[in-house]
């Protein structure tokens, strides 16, 4: 029941990713990314991780991408002119290095999949999560006990980033 849905959603994600990369209009790129984020939320929902799905939709599609689109509109970006110069050696070097990187990653992935026979289950199986009282309870329990220090460090990091952005963006008043 789940696998065909996942396959369909993954196919949509790949198509949207390609559209995002090759689109000449920045708004098209941004909106394919929005649709991609929502489809990814759909993938999470399909495997029963409703909490992560909702967060994915709220944070990425509902907040981060709004700011992206907002700045694209404010900067009034126009359609990108094609800048691929077929006579420059850089174009070919870039193309072949991307192909090489992709092949290397694919080789490494299949090597890994062949060795360990798929994913190894951790302590949080679906039944264990259900026993614990659902995704939210399980996740917050772990987050605020075992990984509490990491959680706080990340929030500190975000605070530093925010202060840094303020300092950089502040108008200099003489």
């Amino acid at each position: 029941m789940v696998e065909p849905v996942l396959a369909l959603l993954s196919a949509i994600i790949v198509v949207l990713g390609i559209v995002m990369t090759v689109a000449k209009n920045p708004i098209t790129s941004a909106f394919s990314l929005v649709a991609l984020m929502l489809t990814l939320a759909g993938v999470y929902a399909a495997i029963g991780a409703h909490f992560v799905a909702a967060l994915q939709a709220i944070v990425y599609a509902g907040a981060v991408m709004v700011l992206f689109v907002f700045s694209i509109m404010l900067l009034n970006m126009n359609e990108e002119k094609s800048e691929i110069n077929l006579e420059s050696w850089r174009t070919y070097a870039g193309f072949w290095s991307v192909v090489g990187l992709f092949l290397g990653l694919a080789y490494a992935f299949f090597q890994w999949a062949g060795e360990s026979h798929g994913p190894r289950p951790g302590p949080w199986s679906i039944s264990a999560i259900k026993e614990h009282g659902g995704n939210v309870v399980a996740l917050s329990g772990v987050l605020f006990s075992e990984y509490y220090i990491q959680f706080e460090v990340i929030s500190l990091l975000l605070l530093v980033a925010m202060a840094g952005a303020l300092v950089l963006a502040k108008r200099k008043v003489d």
């Binding site: 708004i27 939709a57 709220i58 659902g134 939210v136």
Partner: peptide, 25 residues
């Protein structure tokens, strides 16, 4: 009936900003 009901409402309500931006642009 979702465990995260309120979050799913917020997730869809958060999309209401896009038509306004798109229409204006």
């Amino acid at each position: 009936s979702l465990d995260i009901g309120i979050l799913s409402v917020l997730a869809f309500a958060g999309l209401e900003v896009y038509p306004i931006m798109l229409a204006g642009w």
